[in-house]
Design a protein around this nucleic acid. Structure first.
Length: 419
RNA sequence: GCCCCGAUGGUGUAGUGGCCUAUCAUGCAGCCCUGUCGAGGCUGCGACCCGGGUUCAAAUCCCGGUCGGGGCGCCA
């Protein structure tokens, strides 16, 4: 059996058709060795089937006349490419180059490429342009998460944890609608199925748009991706499902999510969690176990808009008249969840520099420490909004992967920096 | 950072104090057969994470280490 990037086909060897030495060499070579063959493509002899059973579609094979062994594979293989045995994720990742040869793994990465392609196509169609922002930065672009420090010649620098500031500066500069697909680095010691220390973030930012506008962009983009996959790429889903069925796992289905996605405001979400028996109060974060309760009612994509301002970063916009029933200030920040998992966080940004500085003070921060951010807003700024989406998390939904590591080529987590 | 769990041939596993010179599958080696088609048959190869301890006896119990898994926090 031969396999290359485009599929697999059986090569039929017969002593009479070829040189005896070549026949013996190919017969004797190890699994996964790389060979080149010359031969005639022919329809296979039909298999014997029991009476009454349908005759399968004709298949093709190559009747080999010549061949060369290009590279011999060592044996045994550290991970079986065609073996029936299940292999642990850690061993697979140590040998990712072999793991990728497994057809369902290969299919997952083809699908990943398609998701990025369709996302791009859709954003371009809505007038967004692709940008690239620096990943080496001098200071935090966004509060909260820990940064990886690095040496930049003689000064200290960090790996960027978000393109947030730079995509905003691009919008302020008049690029109006921008998006970026790029890496983000977070020095958090988390260890879960949905976190990595390096991940690819799908980010957009648009001028003259509010939070509702960019939620619209997002749901249309996701709807477009799902639609295109349904129309063009079900062969990849089938390949994944063939494997899943062999492992007694439920096959994945691709159901195009209808738009608009439900909006479950933060205040409603709190009520749902409370009514579902969760211990939560207005002003608390909605934690994973709370999301489980919400997901019972909203198992698919759903937005959670209008978080309390106190829980969102200083750069999120708020309208002073938008308060909760208990008088708490609401914001224009939102999340997009799928079931229990957070896919996106975004919102309308604060474009007024005096309010930006007021937000910092309200949060107990010193505006002097954030001039790298606020200085960009001193010369006029349009209202604008945006979001960041975890690409691997989206892929988890489509592929049924239980871990983001499955859909990231060479994942970087707390305990893995190789290969 | 917190809580829980695990480590047996290359890979995935069975085994909870003596029945283990350790199970099964896959793999590997050799042979036979074969238009077989991720084939079939036979024979063989290959493992109890490391260091201490308890015990007449440890894969199995205890302690420490290393590595890994799951959950939480935080987030995308």
């Amino acid at each position: 059996m031969l396999r290359d990037g485009t599929g697999k086909i059986q090569a039929f060897l017969k002593r009479d058709n070829m040189d005896e030495d070549i026949f013996a060499a190919i017969q004797a070579t190890s699994r996964e060795s790389t060979i080149s063959i010359t031969g005639i493509v022919a329809q296979k002899r039909p298999p014997n089937v029991a009476e009454g059973d349908p005759i399968p579609d004709p298949e093709f094979e190559i009747s080999v006349t010549e061949g060369t062994i290009l590279a011999v594979a060592d044996a045994p293989l550290p991970v079986g490419v065609t073996d029936d045995v299940n292999v642990g994720l850690d061993i697979r990742l140590d040998n990712r180059h072999l793991d990728l040869r497994r057809s369902h793994v290969n299919a997952m990465f083809l699908l990943r490429s398609k998701v990025l392609e369709y996302g791009r196509v859709h954003l371009l169609s809505e007038g967004f342009q692709e940008i690239n922002s620096p990943k080496i930065i001098a200071a935090a672009a966004e509060g909260g998460t820990n940064l990886f420090p690095m040496k930049y010649f003689d000064t200290d620098a960090y790996l960027s944890q978000s393109p947030q500031l730079y995509k905003q500066l691009a919008v302020l500069g008049g690029l109006e609608r921008v998006f970026e697909i790029g890496p983000a680095f977070r020095a958090e010691k988390h260890d879960t199925y949905r976190h990595l220390n390096e991940f690819i973030s799908f980010d957009i930012e648009g001028a003259w748009m509010d939070d509702e506008d960019v939620m619209g962009v997002q749901e249309r983009m996701i709807n477009f991706i799902w639609t295109e996959i349904t129309e063009n790429d079900m062969n990849l889903i089938d390949e994944i499902n063939k494997y899943r069925i062999s492992q007694d796992k439920e096959p994945v289905t691709v159901e195009i999510p209808s738009i608009p996605f439900p909006r479950v405001s933060y205040c409603e979400a709190i009520e749902i969690v409370k009514n579902g028996g969760g211990d939560i109060e207005w002003g608390d974060d909605i934690e994973s176990h709370h999301c489980d309760i919400i997901a019972e009612k909203f198992p698919g994509f759903h937005f959670i808009p209008r978080w309390p301002m106190s829980m969102k970063p200083f750069y999120i916009h708020h309208k002073i008249e938008e308060k909760s029933e208990n008088g708490g200030q609401l914001s224009r920040g939102f999340d997009l969840n799928y079931g229990r998992d957070e896919m996106t966080s975004g919102g309308q940004r604060e474009h007024r520099v005096d309010i930006l500085e007021g937000n910092l003070i309200d949060m107990g921060l010193d505006p002097k420490d954030f001039t790298f951010y606020t200085d960009g807003f001193r010369y006029g700024a349009p209202p604008h909004s945006g979001w960041g989406l975890g690409v691997a998390r989206l892929l988890m939904i489509l592929t049924g992967a239980g871990n983001v590591r499955e859909v990231v080529l060479f994942p970087r987590d707390r305990s893995r920096v190789t290969p």
